[in-house]
Design a protein around this nucleic acid. Structure first.
Length: 209
DNA sequence: GAGTTCCC
DNA sequence: TTAG
């Protein structure tokens, strides 16, 4: 048993479809919008080249993930405002306790805002010292095609559609698997308000150290 | 469209 | 090294 209440696959990957019902999604969305008010969205960019990522980002929690020309890293403050990130919403702490199986609380919640054409190239989450702590992801808004590979870039991949309210846990070996978002399916959810619709919000909870 | 590799 |  993993303590998640549902069986993980041999890779430690878990998809929990419809974990959050509509009311819970609306409550989470309110938390996210309040957080973005305090910690405005910013445009991350690739190290060295400065090429912008197609998503916009913010963070909750003691640490936030930053991508800019200098590199990828965790920082305790917003790169533009210099203020601390807003605290982690209680509902996300409860989710972590329910599904992660990890004894310590999450330290970061990355907020990724996808427009209708945004994507996330295949990558491994590798900026955390806590490489064995699961990553827990929540989908809000339009559906997305999520791709999960293996430990090497050339590993075969599989894909699945993630819908609003779905929760994904990358635990065990899958914590170090390549993954990404191929595309958004615009107009497939009524959750998000302007200017976030059509689009998708993804929240990822991580233990950093 | 899916899968894989390479380049800046 | 790096989610482009």
């Amino acid at each position: 048993m993993t303590g998640t209440g549902r069986a993980a696959g041999p890779d430690g990957f878990i998809l929990l479809p419809g974990y959050f019902d509509r009311a819970a999604q609306e409550s989470l969305l309110a938390d996210v919008l309040a957080g973005i008010d305090a910690a405005p969205l910013y445009q991350p960019s690739m190290p060295r080249t400065g090429a912008p990522l197609s998503v916009q980002m913010s963070n909750f929690g003691p640490l936030g993930w930053i991508a800019d020309r200098k590199g990828y890293r965790y920082e305790p403050v917003h790169p533009v405002t210099g203020r601390s990130w807003p605290p982690l919403p209680q509902a996300l702490l409860e989710l972590w306790n329910a599904v992660s199986g990890w004894p310590q609380p999450p330290q970061a919640c990355l907020v990724n805002i996808y427009g209708p054409d945004a994507r996330m190239g295949l990558h491994i989450d590798a900026d955390e010292d806590a490489r064995n702590a699961p990553v827990v992801s929540i989908s809000l808004g339009d559906r997305a095609r999520f791709r999960l590979g293996g430990p090497e870039r050339k590993s075969p991949t599989r894909s699945m559609v993630l819908s609003s309210g779905d929760v994904v846990v990358l635990g065990g070996a899958s914590r170090r698997f390549y993954h990404g978002v191929d595309r958004i399916y615009p107009g497939t959810s009524t959750l998000l308000p302007e200017p976030f619709a059509p689009g998708r919000i993804n929240l990822t909870l991580r233990r950093v150290n």
